[in-house]
Design a binder for these strands. Structure first.
Lengths: 255, 255
DNA sequence: CAGTGGTCTAGACCACATG
DNA sequence: ATGTGGTCTAGACCACTGG
C-alpha cells in the first residue's frame, strides 16, 4: 500500500522492458539496477524492495528478476541475506595492493575509512601443510590469527595467519596491546622481515567465507597465499587470504 | 530410443535425488557431474547429452539441471555452445606462472602440449591509454599483437600486446619468421628487458573473450596488465591478458 | 529440418529471520 | 504471523547450428 516517492521501489517505476529487443530482459534489468547503484540512486547498505515487489513493478517473473540479481551478486554489487533482504554492497572500487608493502601502507593511498577486526586468536597443532610451510614438526604449536579488514564498514578481506609458536612466546600479550603483527615481530627481536613468496589464485567463496565477507556463497574470489621470512630466511608467517574478485587489484614490481 | 551403455547418458542412469535431503538438488547434480569429470568418466572434449535427455534421466526440470550446469560452466569444467551442445572442458589444472619468467620457461615446468596461435598482427594508432603507457604521442603508430595459448588443445590464455612501432621497424618480418617476441627484441638490439610492473585484477569474460577462450560469457577471469622495459627503462611492450579464473596460479617472489 | 541451448512464464513450497 | 530469499515444477517460445 506504500506509495512513497522516496521508497527504493520508486526506482523501479514506469519501466518497460521491450521483450527480446536486442538483449535479454534479465540483462536490461541488470543494467538498470547497476546504473542505479553506480549513479548513487541506490546507496551502499540500502535495502532493496522484496523480489516479489520488484518483479511485479518490472512486469517480469521472479525467475527473470533473480537472474539479474544473481549476476549483480556475483559481481559484488549486491548481497542477499535469507529471510532478511537484498542490500547494496560497497562500490567495488579498485583497491590496489602493492606487494611488499604492509596493509597499512597500502590503504593509506586510498580514501575511505579502514578498520580491522580480529575474529580469532588461538593456538593450534600444526597439520602437515602448515608444518611444512612453517618449517616445524607436525603437531607442534602454531598460533592462528584470523582478521577481517573493512573498508567503509564493508568487509573486503579476510585472512588467516599462522606463526610458529616457539618463536613468539609473548604473542598474545603484545598483539593484545597493539593489534599489530609487525609489533609482535619487533617485540621478539625481528626487526627486518620480508615477503618471500606470494601466490595468487582464484576460487569461489565457501559458505564460511561468504558469511564473513557478506557475499553470496559461490561468488568468485581471489585467494592469496604468502610467506614472510626473517633475516635468516626462516619462515615466520604464513598467510592465507580471500578477497572479493572485483574489489582489488594486485600490483607487483619495483615501487 | 538409444539405449547404448557406452553413451554419456549412461552416466546419468539409476540416479535418485532425495528431495531436500540436506543439500539442494541442483548441488547434488553438480557434485555428481563434477565427480564424473574429475574421475575421468567424462573426458575433456566429450559432449554431454542434451539438457532434455539429462533432465529426464535425472527426474528433474531443465531449470534445476541448468542451475548445476551453470555453476560447472562458471568454474570452467563445462562449456556450452548454443545450437550445438555442452562439452567437457580441459581439467582446470593449476598452472603456475612465475613472474619474470617467459611464458615458455613457465610452461616447461608443466606437462601437456602447449601451442600458440597468433590471431592478429596489425598496426594501430595509439589511443590515449596506450600512448601514455608506451610513452609515445597519441595517434602514433603502435603494433598490436593478439595471441592465444592452448594447453592440450584447450585455449587457456589470450593476450594483446602493444609495441611502439618506431622501435621495431622489422617487427612483421622477424615475428613472421620466429613467432617470438623475444627474438623481435633481440633483432632490434634489445638484449636485456625486464618486467617493470604486473597488475592482476579480476573480472568477467566479455562475449569476445568468452568465444576465444571457449567459455560461457560472464565466467570469472583474471585480467593481467604488464609492462616490459628495455635497459634504459623505456617501455617497449604493454600486455593485457585474460585467463580463466580456475586455470592458473600466479607466483611472485625470488625464484 | 530436427536438435540444441537460451530465455521466460505462472504458479508452488520451503527455511529462515524478524517483530 | 508475516515477509524474505532459496528452491523447484511443468510447461512454452526463441535463436542458433548442423546435416
Amino acid at each position: 500500500m506504500l506509495e512513497q516517492s522516496n521508497s527504493p521501489l520508486a526506482a523501479f517505476d514506469g519501466l518497460t522492458f521491450a521483450p527480446r529487443q536486442d538483449s535479454p530482459i534479465w540483462q536490461q534489468i541488470y543494467n538498470h539496477i547497476l546504473g542505479r547503484i553506480e549513479s548513487g540512486v541506490l546507496s551502499p547498505g540500502e535495502q532493496l524492495p522484496g523480489e516479489n515487489h520488484m518483479a511485479a513493478r518490472l512486469g517480469v517473473t521472479r525467475v527473470t528478476l533473480r537472474r539479474a540479481l544473481q549476476q549483480l551478486q556475483k559481481e559484488g554489487h549486491l548481497t542477499a541475506r535469507k529471510g532478511v533482504g537484498i542490500f547494496v554492497r560497497s562500490p567495488p572500487a579498485i583497491f590496489s595492493i602493492r606487494d611488499g608493502r604492509s596493509f597499512r601502507e597500502n590503504i593509506d593511498t586510498h580514501s575511505g575509512s579502514i578498520s580491522t577486526v580480529t575474529r580469532l586468536l588461538a593456538c593450534d597443532q600444526a597439520d602437515q601443510t602448515s608444518a611444512r610451510i612453517l618449517g616445524v614438526a607436525v603437531g607442534s604449536a602454531i598460533i592462528h590469527l584470523r582478521r577481517v579488514r573493512l573498508l567503509s564498514e564493508q568487509p573486503i578481506y579476510v585472512n588467516d595467519k599462522y606463526f610458529p609458536a616457539h618463536r613468539f612466546p609473548d604473542f598474545d600479550r603484545v598483539y593484545g596491546e597493539r593489534q599489530s603483527v609487525s609489533d609482535v615481530f619487533r617485540a621478539h627481536g625481528i626487526d627486518t622481515f620480508r615477503r618471500a613468496e606470494t601466490r595468487i589464485s582464484g576460487g569461489f567463496a565457501s559458505p564460511e567465507e561468504a558469511e564473513i565477507l557478506q557475499l553470496t556463497p559461490g561468488t568468485p574470489v581471489f585467494r592469496i597465499n604468502a610467506r614472510n621470512t626473517d633475516g635468516t630466511n626462516d619462515t615466520i608467517e604464513w598467510t592465507r587470504g580471500c578477497w572479493p574478485l572485483t574489489s582489488v587489484e594486485f600490483v607487483f614490481g619495483p615501487s
